[in-house]
Simulated scan of single mutants.
Amino acid sequence: MLVDRHGRKINYLRLAVTDRCNLRCFYCMPEQGLDWLSRSELMSYEEMLHISQVMLHMGIEKIRITGGEPFVRKDFMPFLSKLSQLQGLQQLTLTTNGVLTAPFVPELKKIGIHSVNLSLDTLDPNRFFAITRRDVLPSVLETLEALLQHGIEVKINAVVMEGKNTEDILPLVELTKSHPVSVRFIEEMPFNGGESHYTSLAWDHFRILEKIKEQYPAITKTIDPPHSTSYNYQIPGHKGSVGIIAAYTRSFCGTCNRIRLTPQGELKTCLYGDSVLNVKDLMRSGMPLQQLQLALSQAISLKEKDGWEAEKNSQSLHTSMASIGG
């Protein structure tokens, strides 16, 4: 069992399969994109399967696949199918922007994907283009429809940004009226591949909730699941639910059970912290299994108390989310 120095059981791995993305969301990366990793710098699928199995034996139970955008990497679905069959894996989920995902939804259902986080900051075509710099909203909505038709749990993730999409909060909440989706609003974070474009957080989780209450005063707090990153709410008569993620305020950090592997195999014990171990290099050096397990255990045991502590010691705060693993 993986346990950090604060006594928290670490059982959730977020595994990024690529840093590349087919959108250019301004809060994630510059318009021209990033200096993408070469193939040799990325972990191979075989390496990802190997390290996943090692971590599953050490106590990881849930794996979330992220990017970049996972579906831009060649042969992603065969990898996902093999990953789903690993011994000890209790839950496999993924995060996607939905642009390329719709045709693969039946296969996602077949291999047992538990849930999908769909990044969708607005339902308005013009604002979608302004945020993502791409005119592909219909493809994302097609993915949403396909996921619902196949009975896959859907969580819509919307980053709330001053002057960009605050008028979309209520239309997104309205989706929960007739659809069994969880719409989750996320405080904006400074991971845009450059200097932060805001000096203070204009829309924190308190303000987001107050905005929703203006239209839905009967909204009520529900019990948050263990290790939940969101504060969760229910509107009477709605099939879905609403969540608010205090990603910048970081008020949920105390129960964190997550670690991350970046596309180049760097282990991060906190989103706001630096990498603590290059797992890919250790595997390619031929490190024996027991030594690899020991290195992982020792690095994870030093996990920071919260995001504020991690940020204090970080040298790479403004790294793009696509490079970290969303």
Rank of each mutant, 00 (worst) to 15 (best):
S115R: 15
R133V: 02
P190E: 09
T222K: 11
A218W: 11
S119D: 03
S115E: 12
N157H: 05
V160W: 03
E214C: 08
L123F: 07
P217L: 13
W203D: 02
E167Y: 04
I223C: 06
S115Q: 12
I186C: 08
A202L: 09
R127V: 04
E153Q: 14
S228V: 10
Y216M: 11
H205F: 12
A158H: 00
Y198L: 10
T229Y: 03
S139V: 07
I131V: 13
P138S: 11
E187V: 07
L123Q: 09
H205I: 07
E210Y: 12
K110A: 15
L137C: 13
E107T: 11
T143K: 05
R133Y: 04
L118F: 02
E195I: 14
P225T: 10
V140K: 00
K221S: 08
P226R: 05
E153T: 13
I113Q: 08
A158T: 14
G194Y: 10
E142S: 15
N117S: 05
K211N: 10
K221P: 04
P180D: 07
V173Y: 02
I113C: 08
D168P: 00
L147A: 00
I156T: 01
T176D: 03
P171L: 10
P171A: 10
L120I: 04
D224M: 05
T122L: 05
N192K: 04
F129N: 08
E145N: 13
T222Y: 08
H205P: 02
V159S: 04
K109P: 01
N192F: 07
I111P: 01
V140I: 14
N157S: 05
M189D: 02
E214S: 10
K164P: 01
V140D: 00
K211T: 14
L201K: 04
D124S: 12
A202C: 05
K110T: 12
T122W: 01
A202E: 10
I219V: 15
H179F: 15
P225F: 12
V116K: 00
T229K: 06
R207I: 05
I212A: 04
H197S: 10
N126H: 13
A202M: 07
H197E: 10
I131S: 00
D204E: 07
V173S: 00
S196P: 07
V140M: 03
L137I: 14
T166A: 12
V154W: 00
P125G: 11
L175D: 08
N192T: 06
T166W: 08
D121S: 08
T220A: 15
